[in-house]
């Protein structure tokens, strides 16, 4: 036996969660774009898309967030005001497993040497109701990085579509059980066929990691990254990329310290005040993204910093596919290159 949510009851779930005080968000279509946004009815949900353009990251790490406020009064006295807002309790309905899995991975860095209260206060306020993927495309690769299209990791409630189009329901942990108790119209039903995408394994992760260990200095990076334009597309759509910048902005006497998304692919990212840049070429910046995700983060914090959602692959304006690059590494293509390729001097 399993617990079943008839599809027609999705509407009741949205209403119940909203009246319980939650902001409910899910995949919403606006023209050609599907992003996670607030919904007021299940009819707003675009559940037919493989994956939204942006990730759920923005609900825990907004693209811009005030972390402190400064005031300077007429007498010239400066006071620093606390800016922590109480985050709005939010349910993400129709989250994808590769989005949900990103949050526990990023928790590790936000709790590493100090606890990031901005991240964790939002994290506390968010509940994930994930729908297992019934379809995938050629850019999906969760199964190559330890995930699965029906993985419960990071979710509070997992819904898996049945052949009849209803949802089999699974609560995870106490938070999940508490949330599921608010779902109306659940019933017991015999286990039915589940619709779960068959995501092929596209590369051997450990072979890719070994290749990275050996190829910090390799012409592979120049050959690969010559076309990279150094934008923030791949990192900003990524659910696991978490780098930020701190800036002071606003009127001089009442300004704000804001934390904004930043991208290791942009050339200013490591630019020192002296003018020196330790990652002077795009190949260094591109290498950093791959190394950080597949070698540095796992060796320091024990988890691969990629859930295989494929967003960066789809979004890259120059079709520089991380999936292709990591597959090439795993297949030993970097090892085969001579290391003597000439440096280009500016």
């Amino acid at each position: 036996m399993s617990r079943l949510l008839p599809r027609a009851n999705l509407e009741g779930v949205v209403a119940a969660l909203r009246s319980a005080g939650y902001r409910v968000v899910g995949p919403v279509r606006r023209g050609s774009l599907v992003t996670y946004d607030e919904i007021s009815s299940a009819a707003d949900l675009a559940l037919d898309v493989i994956i939204t353009r942006d990730s759920i990251k923005k609900f825990v790490l907004p693209r811009t967030e005030v972390v402190a406020r400064f005031n300077r009064d007429a007498a010239g006295k400066v006071s620093v005001l606390d800016a922590t807002a109480a985050p709005q309790p939010t349910v993400i309905l129709g989250c994808r497993p590769c989005d949900a899995a990103a949050l526990p991975i990023d928790d590790l860095v936000f709790a590493w040497d100090s606890t990031d209260r901005f991240w964790f206060s939002r994290r506390e306020a968010v509940r994930l109701v994930t729908i297992a993927c019934a379809n995938c495309d050629e850019s999906c690769f969760c199964t190559s990085v330890g995930g699965a299209p029906d993985s419960p990791e990071g979710s509070d409630v997992l819904l898996t579509e049945t052949a009849a189009g209803d949802y089999e329901v699974q609560a995870l942990g106490e938070r999940g059980a508490e949330l599921l108790a608010k779902f109306p119209g659940l019933r017991d039903a015999p286990a039915a066929d589940r619709r779960v995408a068959a995501v092929p394994q596209r590369f051997d992760l450990s072979a890719a990691v070994t290749a990275l260990e050996k190829n910090f200095e390799s012409p592979f990076w120049r050959q690969t990254a010559l076309r990279c334009v150094g934008c923030g597309c791949c990192t900003f759509v990524c659910p696991t990329c978490h780098c930020f910048d701190l800036v002071d902005e606003g009127p001089a006497y009442h300004s704000e310290r804001r934390r904004n998304w930043d991208a290791c692919q942009m050339k200013n990212f490591t630019l020192h005040a002296s003018g020196h840049n330790p990652r002077p070429w795009q190949e260094h910046r591109y290498r950093q993204r791959i190394m950080h995700k597949f070698l540095y983060y796992p060796s320091r914090l024990g988890r691969t910093l990629c859930t295989g959602c494929g967003r960066c692959v789809r979004a890259c304006p120059v079709n520089l596919s991380l999936l292709q690059v990591v597959s090439d590494l795993a297949a030993g293509r970097a090892n085969a290159l001579p290391t003597s390729a000439g440096e280009v001097k500016k």
Binding site: D54, G230, C231, P317
Partner: peptide, 12 residues
């Protein structure tokens, strides 16, 4: 409002 300041527009 949709803009995430990725600067892809500029960089391409």
């Amino acid at each position: 409002d949709k803009c995430i300041k990725c600067y892809a527009c500029r960089n391409v």
